[in-house]
Design a protein around this nucleic acid. Structure first.
Length: 309
DNA sequence: CACCCGGAAGCCGT
DNA sequence: AACGGCTTCCGGGT
């Protein structure tokens, strides 16, 4: 039997498989995906991004919340996995990549006391890469919704983030990886460990392209015209510019300036524009760090995005 | 008018 | 102190 943990830390989706050979259990997979689906339909209204947190309290059921609307408050919990007792803490981690001016920054984080974060990061890449295209994975997308959502319990007297984080990063645990595992040194961006970043108030360090990608998920002021091509259209230039200005604390932002920002991306080929059209720009998926792809040139639409879509 | 273009320079957080 | 990633301004274009 294998256990699947699906953890989403802030804006980094993570899948962690427990066991020497990472294998997805049908049950767990279907459960997690259908909960997502269910949650999405019943409460998301397509407005927010898909963020989630794993709640091991309830027999491995899952909680999904959007940290922006439903910030995960610090709480403790514990669970058993393959005979091992894990303690975990969820918390908000200020300042990572928050994207909405109406909220104080709330990247939600889940920290598992006894799990090596590097291992999680490794699994995140590895597992998604290996299994996202499999048949059972696809099938489970259509499975019946799983009804039960559990709600997190809140707790007030918990240590501060810094305290909690210290010592967790390289915890003494349990490297259950088989010996021949090699970290993929590949193309991924450095920032994958945003969870470890202490972060600052506000969100000045948001990048334009991440902001756009995030807004594209919402599809309100910008929308995909062809996600496989990376092309998208600005629906409401003034509104999107206003949001961007908010985020960067630039109150005189406008589309002129925002688009100048985009044009800087042309040089590197990160983005481009199709000629003869207005307000239609293009992401070059190949140059978008994997983690942020909503469509992968090799594999098609990203799992998370399929669900959210 | 609304958008598109890139050079030049300034700003600001790391 | 240097640098990335814009922001601001601009003259010119569709």
């Amino acid at each position: 039997m294998f256990n699947l943990l699906y953890i989403d830390i802030g804006r980094c989706g993570m899948i962690v498989i427990d066991g020497v050979e990472p294998m997805i259990s049908d049950m767990d997979l279907q459960r997690s995906l259908s909960v997502l689906q269910n949650y999405h339909e019943s409460e998301w209204a397509g407005d927010d991004s898909l963020y989630s947190s794993y709640d091991p309290n309830n027999n491995g059921h899952y909680i999904y919340t959007d940290p922006l609307d439903y910030p995960i408050r610090p709480m403790h919990g514990q669970f058993m996995l393959s005979g091992t007792d894990y303690h975990y803490t969820t918390m908000t981690c200020p300042g990572s990549s928050d994207l909405d001016d109406s909220h104080e920054s709330d990247d939600s984080s889940v920290i598992l006391d006894q799990v090596d974060m590097e291992m999680i990061e490794f699994y995140e890449r590895d597992v998604e890469e290996k299994y996202s295209h499999t048949e059972q994975f696809q099938q489970s997308l259509n499975s019946a919704p799983y009804q039960q959502l559990c709600k997190p319990q809140q707790s007030n007297n918990l240590p501060a983030f810094e305290t909690l984080f210290k010592g967790n990063r390289h915890s003494n645990n349990v490297n259950r990886l088989s010996s021949n595992h090699v970290m993929s040194d590949s193309e991924d961006d450095e920032e994958s460990s945003s969870i470890c970043r202490k972060g600052k108030r506000g969100a000045k360090n948001v990048l334009l392209w991440k902001f756009l990608l995030e807004e594209l998920k919402k599809g309100k002021h910008v929308e995909w015209t062809d996600i496989s091509q990376g092309t998208f259209r600005f629906v409401d230039t003034s509104e999107i510019s206003r949001l961007w200005g908010n985020m960067k604390r630039k109150d005189d932002m406008n589309f002129e300036k925002l688009s100048r920002g985009i044009r800087h991306y042309y040089k590197s080929g990160f983005m481009s524009r199709q000629e003869g059209t207005r307000l239609i720009y293009r992401f070059n998926w190949a140059k978008v760090p994997k983690k942020y792809r909503q469509y992968d040139p090799k594999r098609g639409m990203t799992i998370k995005h399929q669900i959210a879509y």
